[in-house]
């Protein structure tokens, strides 16, 4: 595709690489399968690759390894894959919509909002079903987003990444303070903290049954709307000039961002930075056409989080290192690189 507006800056020129895109998508799907098998087989009890195969495809409840795999490891790793995909895609959408290279659900208050929603659910609806928890998480993410993201996306011309990032830091501080306050009043501080730090470790099949279809449908709608997202990433004026109904596209995409972030946080707690750097890597590989960026972000995000979770289990066995910490430590050099690059804060 040719640059639509010669006056635009270089970074908004769209370029699409279908061949590379297809290759990358294929390779990363294979990688995902491989990393899932790897993740399932290593751990406190090592399991041979072949046994993993047997457990999944010819399950035998009397074998101990089959039980470990089916009740603990498989749901956990599937959870990691889904959470990774959800965070990566919501980051990609946010970056495209706001044209802000620093957009990420963790940095912009969505994750803190979702955590607050969970704290409310834990405090006042402690016997509620997992669906209710997810709903609260989703609503919380919506509050966080409305405070930070809405302010910038709906404003003509938008705000600079520096301001949005600062607003994200402030809103996160507010929402997590409210959450902490609630937890302290209800003496739940520890259980919520340990639950949040627990990452994907406690994922159950029951949770997956709800979250997997939600995330899957969300990503599917995002792919359907990805052409509109590419046009939005040129900027509001260009999009309108091309006859794009920007408000509807934005509203639907925003809703998907909330659903994805809320669902992901309800499983794994607030993990920042996955949504920041996966889309950057993907854009570097496949170009800036979101028809490729979104599916590739989903798969590569999955691979990344599955591997990060495996690393979290392997660093100091049998203790688990919170996966959010590993992701943050990997993500920060990347953030610093973006922040130092002049373009990021213009």
């Amino acid at each position: 595709m040719k640059p639509i507006n010669p006056g635009q800056k270089k970074e908004t020129d769209v370029y699409s690489r279908p061949v590379i895109g297809t290759t990358i998508l294929t390779i990363s799907i294979l990688l995902l399968a491989l990393s899932l098998v790897l993740a399932i087989s290593v751990g406190a009890a090592n399991i041979a690759f072949f046994d993993v195969w047997k457990a999944v495809f010819s399950y035998d409840g009397s074998r101990e390894t089959d039980q470990i795999i089916m009740s603990l490891r498989l749901p956990r790793e599937l959870g990691a894959a889904i959470v990774g995909a959800a965070f990566a895609v919501s980051g990609a959408i946010m970056q495209g919509m706001t044209r802000n290279p620093l957009a990420d659900p963790g940095l912009l208050g969505l994750n803190a909002g979702a955590s607050l929603g969970l704290a409310i659910a834990f405090s006042y609806f402690s016997n509620s079903s997992y669906f209710t928890l997810m709903l609260f998480s989703f609503l919380g993410a919506g509050i966080g987003a409305a405070l930070v993201f809405g302010m910038s996306a709906m404003k003509r011309g938008g705000m600079t990444p520096l301001r949005i990032t600062l607003a994200g830091a402030a809103v996160s501080a507010l929402l997590s303070s409210l959450g902490e306050g609630l937890a302290l009043i209800n003496k739940l501080s520890q259980s919520i903290a340990f639950w949040t730090a627990g990452g994907v470790s406690g994922t159950t099949w029951g949770q997956l049954k709800l979250v997997a279809p939600t995330v899957f449908i969300g990503i599917l709608i995002a792919i359907i709307l990805s052409r509109g997202l590419t046009i939005l990433s040129f900027g509001e004026e260009v999009a309108k000039g091309l006859g794009q109904k920007t408000f509807i596209t934005k509203a639907v995409l925003m809703f998907i961002v909330l659903v994805l972030a809320g669902a992901a946080v309800s499983i794994a707690g607030a993990i920042a930075f996955v949504g920041l750097f996966i889309p950057h890597i993907v854009r570097f590989l496949v170009g800036t056409d979101y028809r490729w960026v979104i599916p590739c972000s989903a798969v590569i995000g999955s691979v990344f989080l599955v591997l990060a979770d495996t690393a979290a289990r392997m660093i100091n066995p049998p203790f688990e290192t919170p996966v959010g910490a590993i992701v943050a430590i990997l993500g920060v050099p990347f953030f610093l690189y973006l922040a130092r690059k002049g373009r990021a804060i213009q």
């Binding site: 830091a169 943050a328 920060v332 953030f335 610093l336 922040a339 130092r340 804060i345």
Partner: peptide, 11 residues
């Protein structure tokens, strides 16, 4: 400097 601060505190 502010941006680096935000990122570093997240890390």
């Amino acid at each position: 400097m502010l941006l680096v601060g935000v990122g570093l505190s997240a890390a």
